Computed example of a mutant assay.
Amino acid sequence: MVVTLRTLDLVAVPDMSQVNVDVAVGATAALVVRPRAATAVARVVAGLAAPVAGRILVGGRDVTDLPPLRRRIGYVPAGGALLPHLTVGRNISYGQRRRRWVRDVAEGWAAVLVDRLELAPTLGLRPHLLSEAQRFRVALARAMACLPEVLVIDLPSPVDGVRLPDLLDRTSPPDAPGVTVLLCSADEEVLAGVTHRVPVVDPAPPTPARPVARP
């Protein structure tokens, strides 16, 4: 088995259990974890936060200490996190502008994604005018426009009108074995069809203090 993403004893936040997962080329693996911790893991793998411990390997490269732009990891945050002041078209191309090497090897790929994800009618719109499903597809297109080796998706709950397996098939580059995906969620509807699941134990949220009754 050729592994694209591997985490070794990865701890995203204090008291969380270690995450050891291998994701083969073109495969999807799910970290079954509650929303707060799912976001923490996703951000650490994408390079937006430092881990407490452990290593992250992409295609055999240790990327643990590399900045996001050098990891070859695409990231779809919970809610999409689109830039509200930019149109859909500029949101999608935003990542490509920050990764100059992509423009030479992926010219036209963003246009293909727009067509496959049926986003052409929305290119001139701002994110607040989109449906939740459209915002998710825009975030997916933005992440995949840079031709990442790994795609990390933080999806705490289902999005009406989104069938994730279908969208992932549409975003697979030509002549590629498919997108290598790490899905972070604990929702059974989101996880439907994903057989490779890794449960992650995260620290329980603190119990709110009860008010003290005064005489």
Rank of each mutant, 00 (worst) to 15 (best):
V3G: 05
V3H: 07
T4F: 04
T4H: 09
R6V: 02
L10H: 05
V11T: 09
A12E: 04
V13H: 05
P14D: 08
P14V: 03
D15M: 06
S17V: 03
V19C: 14
D22N: 13
V23P: 08
A24F: 08
A27C: 08
T28P: 08
A29N: 03
V33R: 11
V33N: 11
R36Y: 02
R36L: 13
V41D: 11
V44C: 05
A46C: 06
G47F: 02
G47Q: 13
V52A: 11
G54A: 04
R61H: 09
D62F: 01
L66G: 02
P68G: 06
R70T: 06
R70L: 14
I73T: 03
Y75E: 08
V76S: 13
P77W: 07
A78Y: 01
A78T: 00
G79A: 11
G80Y: 02
G80S: 00
G80I: 02
L82M: 04
L82W: 02
L83D: 00
L83T: 06
L83K: 03
P84W: 00
L86M: 10
V88H: 01
V88A: 07
N91Y: 06
I92D: 09
S93R: 15
S93G: 09
Y94K: 06
Q96L: 15
R100S: 02
R100M: 02
R100H: 00
W101Q: 14
W101K: 13
W101H: 15
R103T: 11
D104Q: 12
V105D: 05
V105R: 15
V105A: 11
A106F: 13
W109C: 07
D115M: 01
E118V: 01
A120W: 05
L123T: 14
G124M: 09
G124A: 10
R126V: 04
R126F: 15
P127F: 03
P127Q: 12
P127T: 07
L130Q: 02
E132T: 12
A133M: 04
R135Q: 14
R135Y: 06
R137C: 08
L140C: 03
R142K: 12
M144D: 07
A145F: 09
C146M: 15
C146E: 14
L147F: 12
E149C: 03
V150C: 02
S157N: 09
V159R: 10
V159A: 09
L164Y: 11
S172W: 01
D175R: 12
V179C: 14
V179W: 04
T180Q: 09
T180H: 15
V181H: 12
L183Q: 03
C184Y: 00
E188H: 02
L191N: 04
A192S: 13
A192I: 08
G193A: 14
V198D: 05
V201K: 14
V201M: 10
D202T: 14
A204H: 08
A204D: 11
P205H: 03
P206S: 12
P206K: 05
P208M: 03
P208R: 07
R210A: 15
R210T: 13
P211T: 00
A213Y: 10
